[in-house]
């Protein structure tokens, strides 16, 4: 549905997006995940046609935004990060205005607005001015606006920012529901959110994708990296280190601050698909050491996210 090739965007010489490739098939919910300043919003703004890329090719469906962006904009629903809508308009008038500006061929615009009011539970605020609304209602009005014209593609910039936990759950389930029929791209810097709502996650850092896959795939990749903590008695630090590093699957041995009892505490960083604990145990057993503790920790998605986005 959406195909991005070699997209770059510079703001006054500062790089926001750097030679990015991304492919989003129809009907997928893609989460762009990254710390602030990773280029998420820029990518979304380029897709919506609000800003032009410095270079790169984008195709949305069969269309090329560089040729004519207006028909593409008609197929996209967009929820900006801070919903900047006309504060002195009534919610109803705002939605009515959007229907008119978009030139939607609706037989009964009023019925459509009522329908959106029901779906997003904004019935009760239809006759309040936008400026009076709380953040949660504002977000829902924004979502209603984004879906007003039943777009094929939905682009949401931090859809749950500033909401309370209940509202977050509501919005997430709404997104999942909408995502059954539509292509959705959302940006977030909250990992659990991407995990809960998205079919696929692309982790961004400094304008590049550093990981791309389903939440499960990224987790599996995480699981391949694990660390084992060992507490040994009667072991010489140097000797322990060299002998443990020779165990297959162990990449690195890092001494930790041991407890005051004088035992040796080590963290073994391991990679590879299989569990190295058995081999580590054999190695310990072959020496004259006493094993006080051995525990394994798979890296969480949080750790991966942190490492990926800090490394580059």
């Amino acid at each position: 549905m959406i195909n991005i090739q070699g997209l770059s965007k510079y703001y006054d010489g500062v790089c926001a997006v750097d030679d990015l490739d991304l492919n989003v098939p129809a009907g997928e919910i893609l989460g762009l995940l990254g710390p602030n300043g990773a280029g998420k919003t820029t990518i979304l703004r380029v897709l919506t046609g609000y800003i032009r890329p410095t270079s790169g090719r984008i195709r949305i469906g069969e269309m090329d935004p560089a040729e004519d962006i207006v028909p593409i904009k008609a197929r996209i629903g967009y929820l900006p990060e801070s919903i900047p809508i006309y504060r002195n308009l009534l919610v109803y008038d705002f939605l009515r205005y959007m229907i008119r500006v978009r030139g939607l061929p609706l037989e009964d615009p009023h019925a459509r607005i009522k329908e959106m009011g029901k779906v997003f539970a904004i019935d009760s605020v239809m006759h309040k001015t936008v400026g009076e609304l709380s953040k949660g209602y504002l977000q829902r009005v924004g979502l209603a606006h984004a879906l007003l014209h039943d777009p094929e593609i939905l682009i949401l910039d931090e859809p749950t920012s500033g909401l309370d936990p209940n509202q977050i759950l509501e919005i997430r389930s709404l997104i999942r529901e909408v995502g059954r029929e539509k292509t959705v791209i959302l940006s977030t810097h909250i990992l659990s959110e991407a995990e809960a709502t998205c079919d696929r996650i692309a982790i961004l850092s400094q304008g590049r994708t550093v990981a791309d896959g389903t939440p499960q795939e990224i987790k599996n990749r995480a699981r391949q990296h694990r660390s084992v903590t060992l507490e040994l008695k009667n072991a010489d630090p140097e000797q322990a280190r060299s002998s443990l590093e020779s165990v297959s699957g162990v990449d690195r041995v890092v001494p930790l601050d041991g407890p005051e009892t004088g035992s040796l505490l080590l963290r073994l960083e391991c990679s590879g698909g299989d569990d190295p604990r058995e081999r580590i145990y054999q190695s310990v057993k072959s020496q004259d050491w006493i094993l006080l503790q051995m525990s394994q920790e798979a890296r969480s998605l949080e750790n991966i996210f942190k490492e990926l986005t800090l490394e580059s």
Binding site: T48, V70, P71, K73, A74, P84, I85, V101
Partner: peptide, 8 residues
């Protein structure tokens, strides 16, 4: 930003 993303 909203206007800029409408098909106008």
């Amino acid at each position: 930003e909203l206007m800029g993303t409408l098909p106008v």
